[in-house]
Write a protein that binds this DNA or RNA. Structure first.
Length: 485
RNA sequence: GGCGGCAUAGCCAAGUGGUAAGGCAGCGGUCUGCAAAACCGUUAUCUCCGGUUCAAAUCCGGAUGCCGCCUCCA
């Protein structure tokens, strides 16, 4: 049974979709005016994993993730660079895909853009005005927050406490400082759309209401985003949507925690951020993904080089274990005695249960990974030096679990042999070494070892290690790899 | 000021009533000519104080520290 933490009720609840096997999920995407940073990566990875897990549970998921492609920041950027807003958003949507593809994100079902839904937004606003929830003022349209009963229910805020802190932009003519813009009259030179209230453009919050309900219906299952969106963005979405539809909007609100640097929120305004690509230039994309999944999605995570290096080591170790499974002989006598087989199967079931129970408990990927790493140890114990054919039943069960787990995690899902060898080649090129050179030295060393000239043999080994190459003598001969730092 | 979260081994981090997963690092051992890798063993009573309970890291109250939201933000 899947349980999820719902921000709305501030508690874990059993997950029950509205329409039997179908799940509608909407996640707030990015405003495309700049490169994405690690915080965006976390949100994307978290909800990608949730999407994958819901599918693995057999749900038919409609996953909608938007692009905000019209907004003050985009207009500013366009002015600064002498481009149109469309050119700016187009450029950063491309950059977004370049990053997200490297992170192994599955394509959502729909990725709508606000500018493609302006008519729906206008219709939405019209309805709100007709019902008396919104009003016009100098070509702007505002939502009357006090007219909506229940404002503050998501963020746990009291409407009267908010009053004092509310901000009014110069030139705004709101009836109440808490009211927020649904539609903004355009200034000269700004992109605009025709509307019953003159030329203008959508406010931020309304696009998500219009797009989510258009794809998923007026009441759908999951709405997600970063914790900073709880207020005011999601609070406003609830107000305007429920005012419009007179129905509950979303069943489960899911929010991911922040990425921090030295215990401080990573953000544009603080300037303490890393873009996704500068990190991916230095670390394996799957290491970043693994790092994020080793923490619960609602907790803050502190980002550091050390953490990424640790995740990378764990990543390689996992792939190395999976490579053993891949290279098992298919013939020969059975590798496991019957009592070993029994113990093996029992542990396998145990780790599998650990994995799925953790995922069922509010997508606890960190807990699930413990089952997965336990499994890696089990593989190393039983198969590392396997020269005989392992039990077919055991391998089959093992493969089934591994395949399903890596599909859910989006980590360890490459071909282990290819992953490790391509990594080896990359690092080799970076070190400026050639494989042939290394193998030659290993052959030299083998001769010396045969002659028991261990001192000279060890010299070759330590020389290679200084160059960043580690060698290992195995029953099957000497193998080499890039030495870890 | 209002609202919310967090505090678990050297570091990172799961665990929300029955005597502490996992990752990284360390130490001891097996293997090895010696190593490496792998495996085995080992490393915490859960910030502090008080309370509830047969039983609490886990519930309640208080203290201290850190963080987030209340303004654009994943």
């Amino acid at each position: 049974m899947l349980r999820v933490y719902n921000t709305l009720t501030q508690s874990k609840q059993e997950f029950k979709p509205l329409h039997d096997n179908h799940v509608g999920m909407y996640v707030c995407g990015v405003t495309v005016y700049d490169l994405c940073h690690i915080g965006h990566a976390r949100s994307a990875i978290v909800f990608d994993t949730i999407y994958r897990y819901l599918q693995a549970k057999g749900y038919d998921v409609t996953f909608v993730k938007n692009f905000t492609d019209i907004d003050d920041k985009i207009i500013n950027r366009a002015n600064k660079e002498g481009l149109t807003t469309a050119q700016v958003s187009e450029k950063y949507i491309e950059e977004y895909y370049r990053d997200m593809d490297r992170l192994g994100l599955k394509k959502p079902t729909h990725e709508p853009r606000a500018t493609m839904h302006v008519q729906g937004i206008i219709d939405f606003i019209k309805g709100l005005i007709e019902d008396g929830y919104a009003y016009e003022s100098n070509g702007d349209i505002y939502f009357s927050v006090r007219k909506f009963d229940g404002y503050g229910k998501l963020s746990g805020k009291n409407i009267d406490d908010l009053e004092s802190g509310a901000r009014v932009e110069p030139g705004e003519a709101k009836d109440d400082p808490l009211d927020f813009a649904l539609w903004k009259a355009s200034k000269p030179g700004e992109p605009s759309w025709d509307s019953p209230w003159g030329k203008g453009r959508p406010g931020w919050h309304i696009e998500c209401s219009a797009m989510s309900t258009s794809y998923l219906g007026q009441h759908f299952d999951i709405h997600g985003g970063g914790m900073d969106l709880i207020f005011p963005h999601h609070e406003n979405e609830i107000a305007q949507t429920e005012a419009f539809t007179h129905k509950p909007f979303v069943s489960y609100w899911l929010h991911n925690g922040f990425v921090q640097i030295n215990k401080e929120k990573m953000s544009k305004s603080l300037g303490n951020f890393f873009t996704i690509r500068e990190i991916l230039d230095r670390y394996e994309p799957q290491a970043l993904r693994l790092f994020i999944l080793m923490h619960h999605y609602r907790s803050p995570i502190d980002f550091s080089d050390q953490s990424l290096k640790e995740a990378e080591k764990a990543l390689y170790r996992g792939y190395a274990s999976l490579r053993f499974v891949q290279s098992l002989p298919v013939q020969g006598k059975p590798a496991l005695s019957s009592e070993n087989l029994g113990a093996f199967m029992q542990k396998l079931s145990e780790y599998e249960a650990c994995f799925y129970n953790a995922m069922d408990d509010d997508f606890n990927t960190a807990g699930a990974l413990s089952g997965f790493f336990d499994l890696m140890r089990l593989i190393n114990t039983h198969f590392k030096d396997a020269t005989s054919k392992p039990d077919t039943e055991a391998v089959k069960k093992l493969n089934t679990f591994v395949k399903s787990a890596v599909e859910i995690l989006g980590v360890f899902d490459n071909d282990p042999q290819l992953f490790l060898s391509s990594r080896r080649e990359k690092r080799l090129a970076w070190l400026g070494l050639a494989a042939g050179e290394i193998e030659q030295k290993i052959a030299q060393r083998a001769l010396l070892r045969k002659e028991k000239k261990f001192k000279d043999a060890d010299k070759i080994r330590s020389g290679l290690l200084k160059q960043g190459i580690a060698i290992m003598d195995t029953p099957a001969g000497t193998v080499w790899d890039i030495a870890e730092e």
